[in-house]
Every structure is written in C-alpha cells, then in structure tokens.
Nucleic acid binder design. Sequence first.
RNA 1: GGAGAGUUGGCAGAGUGGUCGAAUGCGGCGGUCUUGAAAACCGUUGUCUGUCAAAGGACCGGGGGUUCGAAUCCCUCACUCUCCGCCA
Length: 423
Amino acid sequence: MLQVNYIRENRDRVVERLAVRNFDAVELVDELIALDERRRQLQIESETLAAEANAAARQIGELMRAGKKAEAEAVKLRSGGYKEQQKQLADDLVAIEKELHDKLVRVPNLPHVSVPKGFGADDNEVVLEYGHRPALPAEALPHWELAAKYDIIDFELGTKVAGSGFPVYKGKGARLQRAMINFFLDQAEKAGYKEVQPPILINEASGFGTGQLPDKEGQMYHVGIDDLYLIPTAEVPVTNLYRDTIVKETDFPIKLTAYTPCFRREAGSYGAHVRGLNRLHQFDKVEVVQIVHPDKSYDVLETMSTYVQSLLQALNLPYRVLRLCGGDMGFTSALTYDMEVWSAAQVRWLEVSSVSNFETYQTNRLKVRYKNEGGKTQLAHTLNGSALALPRILAAILENNQSDRGIKVPEVLVPYTGFEWVD
RNA sequence: GGAGAGUUGGCAGAGUGGUCGAAUGCGGCGGUCUUGAAAACCGUUGUCUGUCAAAGGACCGGGGGUUCGAAUCCCUCACUCUCCGCCA
C-alpha cells in the first residue's frame, strides 16, 4: 500500500497517476488526508496525556521510596483521573487508525509513467513480437483434442476426483510436465536464482503482505477449519519469506525461484475461452522473485522480462510482449509486462507470464527494508514473474508442434523427457 | 488429540510491580596496538512514531484486564519445546 505521508505530500500527483488506472481518487485521497490530520492531532493529545501520567507515576515511586507515604497518596488521588481520559483517547485513536487503514488498502499502486492509459486488454501496448506463427492445415486440432488423441491429459477424470479445472496428466503428458518444471528450475538457477520450496498454504498475514488480501479474497481457496489459503501463486509464500526483515544493502539483489502448484477459484469465468488448459483451478508454475534496491528495480524488471523471453525462445514458441495499460494492470503493480504465446489451433494469444515491479507497494505492507549508507532504514522494491506457467505452454507446444507423426517435443526438453515425440 | 514447560534486543541469557528500553556474554561496527592479521584493551551497537532539531510517546509473542505505575500479577489467543498417542 501507499504511505500516508507520501499521499499527504503529493496529493495531486497521486490523483493524476491513479487516473491512468481510471481510478477516480480525488474523494478517497482527500478523506485520507483529513483522517491523517485528525489522527496526528489525536496522537499528540494522547501522548501529552501519557507524558503527564508517566510523570505522576514516577513521582509516586520516588515519594514511596523516600517514605513520604501521605504525599504519595495525594498524588495518587490526583492521577486517578488520567485513566478515563487515556482510555477515551486511545479508543478514538484506534478507531481512526482502523478507518485510515481500511481506506488506505483500497488505494491501488501508482502506475509508472510509462504505463499507457486505457481500460482493458485492447489498450495494452504491444512492445514486441517474436518468431513466426505457424500456419496449420485445416485439419489441425486444438490442444484438448490432441490431449485426448494421444491420451496425455484426462479432463473428465479430474472432474470426477475434484471438479472441472483439475486435469489429470498421464503418461507422456505427466512426463512433459515434470520435464518443464525441471527445465525452468535449472534455467532459473543458471540465471542466479536460489531455489526454495515454500509452503503452498498461507496464513492471512502473508496474504495481506503481497496484496491478495483483503482485495482478492474470493479468488483463493480458503481452508476454513485452519484459516489458511491455498496459494494462487508462489509469489505469496516466497516474497513473504522476507516479511518483517531488515536486510543489508549488500545482500541485494535477492533472487529466488520456486516451483509450486497454484490454485485459483476463477469464480465466474466460463465459456469457450476456458476450454482445455486455458484456465484451470490448479496448475503448475515456476516463479522468479527479486527483492532489490529501489534505484535498480526498473533495470531488474527489464532483465526479468528478457529472462522470461529467453525461455520462450528456447522452447521455440512465437510470443509477444505487452506493456499493460492502467486499466488492465493488477492492483499492486506499478508496471507489468505480459508475455503471450501463440496458440496456433485456437488462433489466439495465451498469457503465460506476467512480470511486474511493485516498487514499495508490497514492502510497505511486508516491512521489507534495508539500511542505506546513512544508516537510515528504507523500503526495498519487490518484483516477480512467471517463468513460466505450464498449462498454456503445453497447450501451445501441442498445437504448434502437431504433425502427422505426432507432437514434436522442443529440443531443450528432450534431455528431460527422454522422448522426442508424443505419438 | 492428551499432559506439562516456555516465548525478553542479531543470537544466548538475567530480570524483586516503581530508578528497566531492560544486566551479562557472544556477534556486529569504530578505534588503539600490529608490516598485516589474531589476541588484548577502549568505545559503540534495537525498532516504530514525532520534530528543522529536540522533547515526548510506543514496543519484552498478539490481544484484553488489575494498578497511580506491569517485562514482572490475572484472562485469552497464537506459536515453540518435552513426554504420551496417532501417523507419510
């Protein structure tokens, strides 16, 4: 979340930046500033009173030690009244802080200056397109039919066991999944990311830290009996590893990677576009996360984008890179690149990665800080990206690489699969 | 799941209801000494809030209570450890 101080000192800029998201912040921002003003007044009152009460209590202590009991009793009588007032002020303060906090978490991150204004997917800026899209013969099949034809993914079986959106990968399909996970993790390690295996259930504090709670409550599966959530992405547990820590400036950049399953309720999204592997309740993903010095985060964002692209190039998939417009960008992000692969039989682009810079939006919630040269503690910047989400990659491989002979496995995966053809 | 013990500063570990933001040790940082290092010695070393700076305020697992005053007493929740049970 944003810092109140920043909003107070940069009111107009905040309003102007949020307009890029089509977020009319005028009213909210002015409320926040008024609340903050009131909060600070109350705090001064409350602290002044506390100072008086403390002084009286100290005085009683001194008198008691000196054996002046009667005088101590007199002061006691006088200080009895502080309690009521302190309680009242404390209650007011708590109430106003809660109100301030509740409003503050509703303010999304400020878009970077390069973010195009816009309302939805159509307004995203195509940064670049790579590779040529294969022209398939008329009898080419979409991936869900190929999956059935070669018996590598069983959607019905998953429906029986869990429900729709929980596919069962079988035989070469399962092997292909494992191959991709290992390939992606190996590449990430080569790029300097340290592998971690985090919990895939998270508590509320973690969900709040990266911004999923309270905003996206309904998108996560909730285990009520233990009040835990299934992760929608490894971003949550991995970034939260550093919650409430002050790192050394020399520790930057912190680079982590993790393979995890991801769970999303995807409430309300049905239809042709969610067939097959296009949108699932459970899927596998390798994620990369960086925690960096604020001066470096935009360079790092480019590096991460380039890294994700190198994976797509290695897999020989045609892709394009989008700079998301204000209206399409996530709540917590300041700048996001989406990578989409070409799905040749569906004849459309599929999002397989999203690379974002959150600046201090997450670290202000997480309290991830570092000490600068002057010894002052400052908020770090966080970034993350999918590298990559498996199902749509698999969909593109199946569709783009189909032929009479079967499906050609990308060369880089062959050492991991042990076979060259799905047939 | 049952019974018991515990949670204090980066770590270890004291702490009688008042002078405790908290002894001591280790670690970290700076210095003396040294060609350099080690050792020794000296100094320094938490976070948040507030301010031009300060004063002041808050924090001893979280929350609540008793009291003029709580790290210290009471309640409650969470977590950790030990033993028993169950178990991949």
